[in-house]
Design a protein around this nucleic acid. Structure first.
Length: 1044
RNA sequence: GCCCGGGUGGUGGAAUUGGUAGACACGAGGGACUUAAAAUCCCUUGGGAUUAAAUCCUGUGCGGGUUCGAUUCCCGCCCCGGGCACCA
């Protein structure tokens, strides 16, 4: 009988669904989340599927990740490979608007289609744990995340100029603006000022940067992130303003009257010949300086601020500016007065919004100085390589005197040696920087400083399709509050507190004047605990008044919170030490617990945190205070403080101190006025989550800066979770990047409805073992999810601070060398491919067409070729007879196992397929020669090594060999390294590095013998022509190279 | 302008630490089978010289360098792709 006729035809349409169903029925790919012994979290980046369906590039990624995961499974790991989708966002919403359907319907269809397509490619997903961002059971926890951020002071609102797309009618992130145009619709982006919610990612800039040093990621991805964070180190330098008459009513030196600049080159301070401030700088906008050309300046500023992004771009390199006349700044190094300019090449949101211009050594300043005829000073002498070389051991003056080092009419922004720079002369740039910073700090002109390019993350979106930000706006809670904190041996009704309370209430404040526990034995911890509930009630328009030790308590309170208040009044403040020493206090107050007082009084304060929590502070002291030394206000490191030193008030201990009460009232009366129509943000409480996105027929944006939710009265109207008053819901939804910044925490814990993720599960499965995704997300998504992980770690929810152990960025799939796009009509449809060639063939071709990391090029002829190969493989497999005499050399089996395993491990899929093809070719050549034993081994190898790449086919082969269970319950085969080594090797003979001859030799051949044999070769003799070789080089198992 | 990738046959792409460049495919050409075509199988295939076989020259974007030997390392440049862009 004809042998061929017994072989079944390769029918993938029967095979593939059969095995997919089997895997699902057997729950083969659902690891036991709690008992797994070797957990391996194999994750791909959260897909954002388009309504049009899966792209072949997506299939490439998903099946690539799966191939890796299947190898891991065969290596004995409990592989968890989840799938879900990121469905919220503008992209889907715009599409729904375009086709005139409701976003909910479109999303439901997209989801169904997406999962159908994914199921057809045969990946080992755990379908019992899917996650969709737009389901309330998911976004409930996205909102929870927001609340955590809010609690930590990492979510805040600020008015910001944002990119506004007039067509999408929403705010865009900087990253979504491509050359001044909207990434999605290409319309020109405008600037609009809106109040937006931000996440304070800048607070984690340093940590985000530092961890890059140890995480196992590709270097290029790390470099991208480093550049994005953009750290630069240098100094803040203060330039006092001179030639300026302070208005009389300001008696106290105010730090605002210095222009602060940030520079990375403090060593060039001696070359700073003018200053430039940004158009938004306070010097112009906040204060009425007597600018003599005020009109001119303001006109320039107005024009500059009105410029669109587009115009700024177009003008780049063409610098304009106006001198601010009537005032000068003083260069602290030279003591000289220098002019101050305003120009829009200085950016307001980097550094301090002002620069010292060093035209000799900064290209931009150079250009500006050339244009406006400003003085240019050379203070760094270039040091060429020879000079640097010479410098070692020679004396420095030789180089510094070498002024010809300057190129006459050029700006030099490199590093070199400081000249004409006083005490820096002769120092190389790196030394000069250090010395200058030391000098600045010693003389109070500045300090070491670091700046980052990273900006806070704007998460507000004025759209419908996203999770509502869980905040309520309450008018009642916006009412200014006052917290009065009494001192030692007093209570909430002591001294002038009651009188002040009454007046503050009349003015519109809600006043709290609690009594502290045991004021005669004050303990800081107890006081802070007692104060906490009141602090929670305060808002940004609140004041805190602390008397004596109470003012110390106020500082501690603010030093330990992220909460913001407006004003802080410190009366007879217990900072510094008491006027007399502690023994005197003890003597004077024999009955008091001075020990606890002293401990409280002297505790360290976190001034930086206080300064972040309070806008302005007032210190009121009396010269004749018996306890408080009026000089000790100097100890207070408050950034914006007013100091009042009065006389005749002693320790401000009377029942009424009208002057003091008046002072406090006058200085806080602006708050009730200001907040008359304001609303305060109040976070929704966790138990009320989720804030559900309401069903809305009309979900189109209004286009006035508010989202569509603002149109839904029922949604907006609510009760304040704190005071119960009538309130309004926030109508912004959050950025989809928030959804995708934490989804990997949810996958292992999807069945928990009472928490975002379970502690033990998370501990077991995270961090993610292998994360694979597109390189286009190396900056934003990866940075955001790292940030969120760090915050969750700091909040104690998790015990690690990096989410992904390993990241791998894959490349893009092109079609015939061109990017696939709908408009070009060259998009490869995976459904068609699977229909025509089957999932396995499609998978194999995707593995083969190029390097996974670089990307690859899809060619229809290529997939045809792969289809032929698969058929050939099918027939070869069934044609192996096992009735031959046995083949002598069967090292191909071991070699194949070794190479394919290694290749898949390092995601070098294309070579893995090539190795497999070589194996198949070898099997085909020998198919009639294998003996029974060899035939079985060959067939097993064919099935097992194919399994990660073409799982259905491998299962079919395996079951034909009598396998009762899935091939994926089998171990990845072992190989014997000894079998791979051949006894005979081929040695190459080179003459001067060129191949001239080859010979077979024993693998164990000695160096001497190899050289001897090489020299004996006839062909080599010809080259030698009787002469002796100069040198003979032997490389073990490779070659002999003869030099003549 | 700056920072990352990359440049290898007609094409996609191999070459793990410097050691036989072009694995594995696609395409093309030739042949077998066939009335013919498809499918399948076999052979050839970087370029060039010359030939009967052999052999030689040349060759990894360009120009230099290091080395016995360079696709690989160093210096200078060109081109393509991606990102950033007045970041002090």
């Amino acid at each position: 009988m004809d042998k061929k006729s017994q072989i079944p035809e390769y029918d993938f349409k029967e095979i593939e669904p059969k095995w997919q169903k089997y895997w699902e029925d057997e729950k083969l790919h659902q690891p036991d989340m709690d008992k797994a012994k070797k957990p391996f979290y194999n994750l791909m980046m959260f897909p954002y599927p388009s309504a049009e369906g899966l792209h072949i590039g997506g299939v490439s990624t998903f099946t690539g990740v799966d191939t890796f995961g299947r190898l891991k499974k065969m290596q004995g790991y409990d592989v968890f490979e989840p799938i879900g989708l990121d469905g919220f966002g503008i992209h889907s919403e715009n599409y729904a608007m375009k086709i005139g359907e409701h976003i909910k319907d479109v999303s439901a269809r997209t989801e169904k289609n997406f999962y159908r397509q994914l199921a057809s490619i045969g990946n080992m997903y755990d379908w019992s744990k899917t996650v969709e961002t737009y389901k309330p059971e998911y976004y409930k926890w996205t909102q929870w995340l927001f609340l955590q951020m809010y609690k930590k002071g990492l979510a805040y609102q600020k008015k910001a100029k944002v990119n506004w797309c007039p067509s999408c009618k929403t705010v865009l992130s900087d990253e979504q603006v491509i050359q001044g145009k909207c990434e999605r619709c290409d319309s020109e982006v405008q600037k609009k000022e809106l109040k937006q919610w931000f996440f304070k990612i800048t607070e984690y800039a340093e940590k985000l940067l530092k961890n890059l040093d140890w995480i196992d990621w590709p270097e290029d991805v790390k470099t991208n992130q480093r550049n994005w964070i953009g750290k630069s180190t240098g100094a803040i330098i203060e330039f006092p303003i001179s030639n300026f008459q302070f208005p009389n009513k300001f008696k106290i030196q105010n730090s605002k009257f210095k222009i602060r600049v940030f520079t990375t080159r403090p060593d060039t301070l001696f070359g700073a010949t003018y200053m430039v401030v940004a158009p938004e700088h306070w010097l112009i906008s906040n204060f009425q300086f007597p600018i003599s050309n005020s009109n001119e300046v303001h006109e320039y500023v107005k024009k500059a601020l009105a410029k669109s992004e587009q115009e700024r771009k177009a003008e780049e390199g063409v610098k304009t500016g106006v001198e601010i006349k009537g005032l000068k700044a003083v260069n602290p190094a030279t003591g000289e007065e220098i002019p101050v300019w305003v120009a829009d090449y200085v950016l307001t949101d980097y550094g301090t919004g002002a620069i010292m211009a060093v035209p000799g050594h900064d290209e931009r300043d150079w250009e500006f100085a050339q244009k406006y005829g400003l003085e240019i000073r050379k203070v760094v002498c270039p040091l060429d390589k020879d000079a640097r070389y010479k410098k070692q051991g020679t004396n420095k003056s030789q180089i510094t005197n070498h002024k010809d080092g300057f190129y006459n009419n050029e700006c030099f922004s490199g590093e070199g040696v400081a000249v004409s720079s006083g005490f820096l002369d002769g120092l190389e740039t790196f030394e000069a920087k250090e010395k200058m910073i030391e000098w600045l700090e010693e003389n109070g002109h500045g300090e070491r400083s670091t700046d980052y390019k990273l900006r806070d993350w704007c998460i507000s979106r004025q759209r419908y399709w996203g999770p509502p930000i869980p905040v309520v706006w309450c008018k009642n809670c916006a009412k200014p509050k006052a917290l009065l904190i009494h001192g030692f041996e007093a209570d909430g009704e002591s001294n002038w507190f009651l009188s002040l309370k009454k007046q503050l209430e009349e003015q519109g404040f809600e006043v709290f004047n609690p009594s502290m526990p045991k004021s005669e034995h004050p303990e800081l911890e107890n006081w802070l605990e007692a104060l906490q509930p009141y602090l929670d009630k305060l808002n940004e328009n609140s004041i805190i008044v602390g008397h004596s030790l109470g003012s110390k308590a106020a500082l501690h309170l603010l030093g330990k919170t992220h909460k913001k208040v407006s004003k802080l009044f410190l009366v007879a403040s217990a900072i510094g030490n008491p006027k007399r020493n502690w023994d005197n206090v003890r003597e004077k107050m024999p009955g008091a617990d001075v020990e606890s007082l002293q401990k409280f009084w002297q505790a360290e304060i976190d001034w930086e945190s206080v300064n972040q929590s309070v806008d302005s502070s007032y210190i009121i002291l009396s010269k004749d205070d018996p306890v408080i030394d009026p000089e000790h206000y100097k100890v207070a490191k408050l950034k914006d403080k007013k100091i009042e030193i009065w006389e005749g008030f002693k320790h401000f201990s009377k029942k009424r101190v009208p002057e003091l009460e008046k002072y406090i009232l006058e200085n806080s009366e602006d708050l009730p006025k200001k907040t008359k129509n304001e609303k305060a943000p109040v976070p929704v409480s966790e138990k009320d989550l989720p804030v559900e996105l309401p069903d809305m027929e009309d979900f189109l944006p209004e286009g006035k800066g508010k989202g569509p939710l603002a149109k839904n009265e029922e949604f907006v109207k609510t009760k304040c979770p704190v005071c119960g008053a009538e309130a309004q819901r926030e109508t912004d939804v959050s950025d989809p990047f928030v959804d995708s910044s934490w989804y990997f925490f949810r996958y292992p814990s999807t069945e928990f409805t009472d928490k975002p993720f379970d502690g033990e599960r998370t501990h077991k499965w995270l961090p993610v073992d292998s994360y694979i995704g597109g390189k286009e997300h190396t900056v934003l998504h990866l940075l955001y999810s790292r940030f969120i992980t760090m915050v969750l770690n700091d909040l104690g929810h998790i015990d690690f601070d990096e989410p992904y152990k390993r990241f791998f960025g894959h490349g893009l799939i092109t079609k015939d060398g061109a990017k696939m796009s709908k408009s070009k009509g060259n998009v490869v449809n995976p459904d068609e491919m699977i229909e025509k060639h089957g999932a396995d063939t499609t998978r194999l071709y995707l593995r083969f067409l190029g390097d996974f990391e670089q990307g690859g090029d899809w060619r229809d002829s290529g997939v045809e070729g792969m289809s032929r190969f698969v058929k050939k493989l099918w027939h070869t497999f069934f044609e192996i007879s096992g009735e031959g005499q046995g083949v002598k050399k069967d090292y191909m089996i071991d070699r194949t196992i070794k190479l394919i395993g290694e290749d898949i491990e390092r995601l070098s899929f294309n070579t893995a397929v090539a190795r497999y093809m070589e194996f198949v070719n070898w099997v085909r050549d020998n198919k009639d020669n294998f003996n029974r034993e060899q035939a079985l081994k060959v067939k097993k190898t064919l099935a097992l090594t194919l399994a990660p790449m073409a799982p259905h086919l491998a299962e079919e082969f395996w079951s034909s060999l009598g396998g009762q269970k899935s091939i994926f319950t089998e171990k990845w085969p072992e190989y014997n390294p000894v079998n791979i080594q051949s006894d005979e090797i081929e040695l190459v003979i080179q003459v001067n590095g060129k191949v001239r001859d080859k010979f077979q030799a024993d693998a164990e051949i000695s160096e001497e013998e190899a050289k001897k044999k090489a020299l004996e070769s006839e062909k080599i003799q010809k080259y030698l022509a009787g002469k002796e070789p100069k040198k003979v080089i032997y490389v073990k198992e490779k070659l002999v190279n003869i030099v003549i």
